[in-house]
């Protein structure tokens, strides 16, 4: 008799297979190019250049893996790590969708909603970039560089994260306000802090703050 595999186990099995295939697809680009042109990197300078960039790439890769994985469902995690742009696009999309559907990220429904949101976002982004590169390179460059429309694209993060923050202000205004304040203090002392590091700091701040408020509110209700 065929064993009924739980959905989460299936997702992890699919995710592992797709991620391994993604690695193959990713490495096929330089490999096929090098084989076709018999053009290989000069080992000495190449390794020197690589050593200079690996700490940046790999430290942030480790941080991203352990920070984002618990927050988005299993399907969403496998998909977003292949398609990239996690903090600035896939996560906000998943957060907005979970909020709108009124489901928790850790629930079965949350797994479904975050996966659908991330998949839809990945398809839209991939199609727009492909169409832009193949068909609209001139209008897109004009649009994003024109003095009239450029400010819209320069201010995309305040516009996007302002709307997201507003949805959380309603339910968790104390945690949201306290975390933004802590974030602003950190940024004041280090204005150029990388967003990857800042995210780790503000997540820790938000979790500690919300834990504190949670304890205060449970104490208050116990006293009543």
């Amino acid at each position: 008799m065929k064993k009924d595999v739980p959905y989460f186990d299936k997702v992890h099995r699919w995710g592992r297979i797709w991620t391994l295939l993604a690695l193959v697809a990713l490495f096929s680009v330089p490999l096929v190019f090098s084989l076709a042109h018999d053009a290989w990197p000069e080992p000495g300078p190449f390794l020197k250049g690589l050593v200079a960039i690996l700490p940046l790439y790999w430290v942030s890769g480790i941080i991203e893996t352990f920070t984002y994985t618990p927050m988005i469902g299993a399907g969403g995690t496998y998909l977003s790590f292949v398609t990239g742009n996690i903090a600035n696009l896939k996560l906000p999309c998943a957060i907005a969708a979970l909020e709108k559907a009124d489901v928790k990220g850790t629930s079965d429904e949350g797994e479904v909603i975050s996966t659908i949101a991330i998949a839809s976002s990945a398809i839209t982004t991939t199609v727009i970039i492909a169409a832009g590169v193949l068909l609209f390179s001139i209008p897109v460059q004009w649009l994003t560089k024109s003095p009239v429309f450029a400010p819209a694209f320069q201010q995309i993060f305040p516009a996007m994260f302002g709307a997201l923050m507003a949805s959380y202000l309603r339910k968790h205004w104390k945690t949201a306000a306290a975390t933004v304040l802590i974030g602003c203090i950190v940024v004041f002392f280090s204005p150029s802090i990388g967003i990857g590091i800042l995210i780790v700091v503000t997540i820790v701040a938000a979790v500690l703050t919300s834990f504190l408020f949670y304890k205060i509110s449970t104490k208050k209700s116990a006293a009543k």
Binding site: F161, H172, L198
Partner: peptide, 22 residues
């Protein structure tokens, strides 16, 4: 649930803080 919501707030707050004084 509280912690999960807080983690999302943490991500959003990082971008909001950068937009305020970064």
């Amino acid at each position: 649930d509280v912690v999960a919501a807080a983690a999302f707030i943490g991500i959003i707050a990082a971008f909001v803080s950068k937009s305020i004084n970064g």
